[in-house]
Design a protein around this nucleic acid. Structure first.
Length: 869
RNA sequence: GCGAAAGUGGCGGAAUUGGUAGACGCGCGAGGUUUAGGACCUCGUGCCCGUUAGGGCGUGGGGGUUCGAGUCCCCCCUUUCGCACCA
């Protein structure tokens, strides 16, 4: 039998909320009324359904939304589906199932799972990025980008992933493998749509300053944008008219440039290569091209390169310096070419040493410097007119000189590259573009949306041989006419990447059914920016950078009123599986202590060992290590792992709800620890919060199921306990410290259980405090306390200072910093009184008698310390 | 290698400006209650010594500042997460 009837009351209140539109967002609000836009990163509805990580962030935002609502704030708290994407299409490729069918099924599953958790979303604002009424506006925004010159097509080397059958953005490829799925990718040149995010690099960087985001996330974005100040320097080429342009952050070291390096892909390689070196260079380039990005990084210890035989002329001293080709220079950064200054650059030093290239120091290292390249500050040497200047001054001086002589200028460079925006997939937003006589023309906005062609089954596409893009196989759809000229035209057959829909969905929630505008400007001005945005740290760069970029474009286009979309951002920490204890055994079945094991082998013998799970009962702690109880000399590993199907440690929220109820699950997820921290799941710990809810229930409901609160006025202690709880819970919600808020409510219940009876005037405010955390039980208790209206819009309790006061407090008495006793005095007791009470304590007196009191420290209500010797 | 964050009982975790370390929960122990319980209630629970009173030691390690340090400063170790030839 459950400790309280959660299985009845949870569905009951979920029905009530839906029928009464309890969480409908206020319409036609007073523009001056306080608002709070509380947003979760909307999920991709995967086939696997919800995992326990989802409700973590969702519960946090739900608590804030419910709390703000009770404070009379207008709250927007919506939910939707980021439903375009590769998994549904990969499933379609395998089974022929239309991605729309898969997606609809998954959404239905996600929705019902979410509803079981009792979140206070305004479900009437649910959006779905695959809905033509939604992606009409995604396409509309693309046209804005196009109109503003921020979307262009180019033949560029892109990451092609054979397995996924599409190209991917740089950001989606990690170490030469796709971010999703980990499939190998290769660089191939293809004609693609590209968004000019680099035009916004500076603003994307500056905008970070005023955001209330985790520092680490801001830092990651800064690193990704990668601003660096330096100079462009143009080196004339010996025997050629062209110049070789490089970017350097150290123009002050120009006199020390002893060779040049071109990336293998650099367009001038053929120009500068002499006949004598042509074969070697061409072979090197082929080798470099074959290397995957992974191999390049793996082989980074050893730099390689070949001379071209060509020479450049150092503009500052007229010296001829050799030009090399080496793949330690990246084609995609700067100009794809560098001036190498081994004296002040460790990479160049390593290369110069290997190939016996000259090294000239142009900064005087300190006397005790014994390294190779010196990258620190110091006076310039061997540098003509720069000699004696410190690095910063020398940079300024040489930059001026370059500008005066037309050899270069100050330059700011960014690591950020333009955003590869097209994918060769069916299940994405079609581009609102037609091609007429080879020219890309935008589809007029009143012809939007350009809908995905209807197909009965994905097999229709599979059966056709669509070389690159599935849409290209559908001739009826591709062939169209230019609405302006009537000429025959072909539709763009690429689709947009999954990021597109999530770049602006927070705007659509504000006005989800508007078919005239993306969002009504008045409503947008009221609700934006998002006041609290909660989602995983895995989106620290991609989604959050792309969305900021689009938002700034929309701001420039006058569509939105704020420069930044998300004012406050919080990442919920990952929830790991239950802690696992692992012992290791060798081939003979003998235990191998964990400190000798590294990646499945015994480091002493090199033989394989196999992991063996151990129950917690068979483990003990010996100093800093866990060991087997039966073999204390054998250490075992104790750690929690990321939940995964393959490891079999996934916890399904539905199972937890079946056993403990949604309120307990919500409460546990918040009680585990700080929201932003990584935390291991522990099902036995769910018992703790579940028991707490049972105690809350029995505090107010007796064994017969009747309400048992009393009408009497509360006493001083009851008021103090209540008001301390109000204060703590309120403060903790504001700071998102939900774990300590719950601990305080537990303390309240522990205290209240000792009372003979609970006054209604105490029970009611407490139920309100509990309601954002455990809304179902709170609604039920609220109703049983004789309220006809939902607690969702009841007034949040306020604490009164007068009830927090204590008559006496316990003060620790230390002698020489060690506590020797405690005394009870008024919190504001005069020093003389407090000290004499302290001296009167028997144990304190013992220590005072041992010497002379040299000093007395008294912090009222806190501590007394006697310094004695 | 570079950057950031974090190391507190058997476990998850608490601790305003430096002021009684271990709130709250799990687990464990004792008792009560119940036909029974993996239900519920009460008490105890950092480690060591001591029957009690009390004492010693304790927030990754070492040093320092202070009447007083989990908290501040310096050095080191470990873990996690980013980035990784960006000129």
């Amino acid at each position: 039998m459950p400790a309280y009837p959660f299985d009845e009351i949870e569905p009951k209140w979920q029905r009530y909320w839906a029928e009464h539109h309890t969480f409908r967002t206020p319409e036609d609000v007073d523009p001056d009324a306080e608002k709070c836009y509380v947003l979760d990163m909307f999920p991709y509805p995967s086939g696997a359904g919800l995992h326990v990580g989802h409700p973590e962030g969702y519960t946090a935002t739900d608590i804030v939304a419910r709390y703000k609502r009770m404070q009379g704030v207008n709250v927007l708290h919506p939910m939707g589906w980021d439903a375009f994407g590769l998994p549904a299409e990969q499933y379609a490729v395998k089974t022929g199932t239309h991605p729309r069918d898969t997606t609809e099924r998954n959404i239905a599953n996600f929705r019902s799972q979410l509803k079981r958790l009792g979140f206070s979303y305004d479900w009437e604002r649910e959006i779905n990025t695959t809905d033509p009424d939604y992606y009409k506006w995604t396409q509309w925004i693309f046209l804005k980008l196009h109109e503003r010159g921020l979307a262009y097509q180019a033949e560029v080397p892109v990451w092609w992933c054979e397995e996924l059958g599409t190209v991917l953005a740089n950001e989606e490829v990690i170490d030469g493998k796709s971010e999703r799925g980990g499939y190998p990718c290769e660089r191939v040149p293809m004609r693609q749509w590209i968004l000019k995010i680099t035009d916004y690099a500076e603003r994307l960087l500056e905008g970070l300053d005023d955001l209330d985001w985790p520092d680490s996330t801001k830092q990651m974005q800064r690193n990704w944008i990668g601003r660096s100040e330096g100079a462009t320097v143009r080196f004339p080429l010996a025997n050629h008219t062209e110049e070789l342009e490089v970017f350097t952050t150290r123009p002050d070291t120009l006199f020390g440039a002893t060779y040049m390096v071109l990336a293998p892909e650099h367009p001038l390689v053929d120009e500068v290569t002499t006949e004598e070196h042509a074969d070697a260079v061409s072979e090197y380039r082929q080798q470099a091209q074959k290397k995957s990005e992974l191999e390049r990084t793996e082989l980074q210890k050893e730099k390689t390169g070949v001379p071209t035989g060509g020479y450049a002329i150092n503009p500052v001293n007229g010296k001829e310096i050799p030009i090399w080709v080496a793949d330690y220079v990246l084609a995609s950064y700067g100009t794809g070419a560098i001036m190498a200054v081994p004296g002040q650059d460790e990479r160049d030093w390593a290369f110069a040493e290997k190939y016996n290239l000259p090294i000239v120091r142009t900064v005087q290292p300190p006397e005790d410097f014994d390294g190779d390249a010196y990258t620190g500050d110091g006076p310039a040497i061997n540098s003509g007119f720069l000699n004696g200047l410190d690095v910063d001054t020398a940079k300024d001086r040489i930059t001026d000189w370059l500008e005066e002589h037309g050899h270069g200028e100050a330059t700011i460079n960014y690591k950020l590259r333009d955003w590869l925006f097209s994918r060769q997939r069916y299940w994405g937003e079609p581009f609102p573009i037609i091609h007429v006589e080879g020219e890309a023309k935008p589809v007029p906005t009143n012809d939007l949306p350009v809908e995905l062609p209807a197909i009965d089954s994905y097999n229709e596409i599979l059966e056709q041989d669509a070389a690159l893009s599935p849409l290209g196989a559908l001739d009826d759809w591709v062939a169209t006419t230019d609405p302006q000229t009537g000429q025959p035209a072909r539709r763009e057959t690429n689709t947009m990447p999954q990021w597109a829909g999530s770049c602006w969905y927070f705007l659509r929630f504000i006005d989800p059914h508007n078919d005239e505008q993306l969002v009504d400007p008045e409503k947008e001005a009221y609700w934006m920016p998002v006041d609290l945005y909660v989602g995983g740290a895995e989106h620290a760069v991609l989604h959050l950078l792309y969305a900021r970029f689009w938002h700034k474009v929309l701001y420039d286009a006058g569509v939105v009123s704020t420069q930044e979309p998300f004012q406050t951002l919080v990442h919920q920490g990952l929830i790991l599986g239950e802690t696992e204890y692992t012992a290791y055994v060798d081939a003979d079945g003998a235990y191998v202590s964990a400190e000798h094991v590294d990646e499945g082998t015994d480091t002493r013998t090199g033989t394989d060992v196999s992991p063996q799970p151990v129950e917690q009962e068979d483990i003990q702690k010996d100093d800093d290590y866990f060991v087997l109880m039966a073999h204390p000399e054998i250490r075992v590993d104790a750690r929690s792992h990321k939940m995964s199907k393959s490891r079999g440690n996934v916890v399904n929220p539905d199972d937890v709800i079946d056993e403990y109820g949604a309120d307990a699950l919500r409460l546990y997820e918040m009680f585990m620890g700080p929201l932003e921290q990584v935390k291991p799941w522990s099902t036995s710990d769910v018992d703790g919060v579940y028991r707490f809810l049972g105690r809350v229930w029995r505090l107010i409901i007796d064994a017969q199921g009747d309400t048992q609160v009393v009408g009497e006025a509360p006493n001083r202690e009851q008021l103090r306990v209540l008001h301390e709880t109000i204060q703590k819970v309120t403060d903790d919600i504001e700071s998102l410290s939900f774990n300590t808020a719950i601990a305080k409510m537990m303390e309240f219940v522990n205290a209240a259980n000792k009372w003979d009876a609970v006054p209604q005037a105490i029970a009611e405010p407490f139920v309100k405090l509990l309601s954002p955390f455990a809304p179902h039980i709170a609604e039920e208790l609220w109703a049983r306390l004789d309220h006809a209206e939902s607690i969702a819009h009841a007034d949040w309790p306020e604490f009164a200072e007068e009830h927090l006061k204590r008559e006496v407090v316990e003060v620790a008495v230390q002698v020489n910093g060690t506590v020797r006793g405690t005394i009870e005095v008024a919190p504001d007791a005069p020093e003389a009184d407090a000290l004499s009470t302290a001296r009167a304590d028997d144990n304190v007196a013992r220590y005072l008698d041992d010497g002379t009191v040299r000093r007395e420290i008294y912090v009222p209500g806190r501590i007394i310390n006697f310094v004695v010797n």
